[in-house]
Nucleic acid binder design. Structure first.
Length: 343
DNA sequence: AATGCGGGGCA
DNA sequence: TGCCCAGCATT
């Protein structure tokens, strides 16, 4: 099978690709690394403001390694998949402690860092070090699955293996950093879910385009109906208007973030607060239920407002704190931020 | 409401 | 090695 033509793609990139992304100027290993982690599961336009704020606060790997996890998560708050931020922070410490603050230049060394898989490692080496390494992110997967009409869901091992083979075969021997950005840009701007083949430089050799139904690739993940869980989120204010925040466990959903105390919907809120939080609540009122959807379940959230004592006997050191709603003690999950914005 | 988006961790 | 897990934006 004929690989796609890298020269044609590079010519398109020179004329129509994205050359003004923040991590391209300057294109340092640190900036490329941070951007690649943020770009896992998250689109470019969403990432840009987070990237700018992150660079302001943590301009290099040393400042990141020296930071408290709370501060890293606070800057990540709203981006989702918070394990990325925890792994990024661990990786920064790893680089400072074991690589003397210098970035690795081999695939193996990057893969040894938490949060770095084959595609991310390839993207960093190609873009920051101009090494000839393939990548296979969602954009590239879409382009290659269509160009070669590779059937099946890319999550399947066999399908993934075929895509990696194509990704390797497509790499040019020069301008690898530009090529890597080019094929991602094509997937992000032209070969999207509803592709615009009239603007595609590769349409001529694309087998999916030839079928007239390019949107049929890549195959979709087989989906089940998501279960629904319910919880009450407690917005408990003291006399000064401060809110009771609760730190979530270090892993799992919203791991390491600050959130609101929760109460199972079939339990009495006052009793739950007394027994689990050690506070007395009154003036309870429920708000409108809203839905937050995770990848594998819906969470229906009932906001419950209440008043608590001036000096609650908070249990467990460090897991609970009273703070003004606009000055949370750390990063908050998106539904909690939304809850505190519109009381 | 459905879809897309990489990698970690565990059996 | 094959599952299960995770949080947003976009459509």
């Amino acid at each position: 099978m004929k690989p796609l033509d890298a020269d044609t793609l590079l010519a398109w990139f020179d004329a129509h690709g994205r050359h003004d992304l923040p991590w391209q100027h300057p294109r340092t290993p640190y900036r490329v690394w941070i951007s690649e982690i943020m770009l896992q599961q998250t689109q470019v336009n969403t990432v840009i403001p987070y990237f700018e704020r992150f660079m302001q606060r943590f301009p290099d790997v040393h400042s990141l390694a020296a930071a408290a996890q709370d501060e890293v998560l606070a800057l990540w708050s709203g981006l989702g998949y918070y394990a990325r931020a925890r792994n990024l922070h661990r990786a920064a410490r790893h680089i400072v402690e074991r690589h003397d603050g210098r970035f690795p230049t081999t695939l193996e060394a990057w893969l040894a860092l938490p949060g770095i898989g084959r595609s991310t490692a390839g993207a960093i080496l190609a873009q920051a070090f101009d090494q000839r390494q393939p990548i296979l992110d969602g954009n590239v997967r879409r382009v290659l699955a269509r160009y070669h009409t590779i059937d099946g869901w890319p999550g399947d091992r066999a399908v993934q293996d075929r895509l990696w083979q194509r990704a390797e075969a497509a790499m040019p021997h020069r301008r690898i950093a530009d090529y890597t950005q080019a094929i991602m840009d094509l997937g992000a701007t032209v070969c999207t879910r509803q592709p615009d083949c009239t603007r595609c430089p590769l349409a001529e050799g694309c087998r999916a385009h030839a079928t007239g139904h390019p949107q049929a690739w890549p195959g979709r993940k087989p989906r089940k109906a998501l279960p629904v869980r319910r919880t009450a989120m407690l917005i408990l204010r003291d006399a000064d208007g401060r809110i009771l925040f609760e730190r979530r466990p270090p892993a799992g959903i919203w791991g390491g973030l600050w959130s609101l105390p929760e109460c199972p919907v079939n339990e009495s809120v006052p009793r739950h607060c007394r027994e689990r939080l050690g506070v007395c609540v009154d003036h309870l009122s429920a708000g409108a239920t809203f839905r937050h959807t995770f990848s594998h379940f819906h969470l229906d959230i009932v906001p419950v407002h209440g008043r608590i004592d001036d000096a609650p006997a908070l249990r467990e050191g460090g897991t609970h704190v009273l703070s003004p709603p606009d000055e949370p003690p750390g990063g908050l999950p998106t539904p909690v931020r939304r809850l505190l914005r519109q009381p």
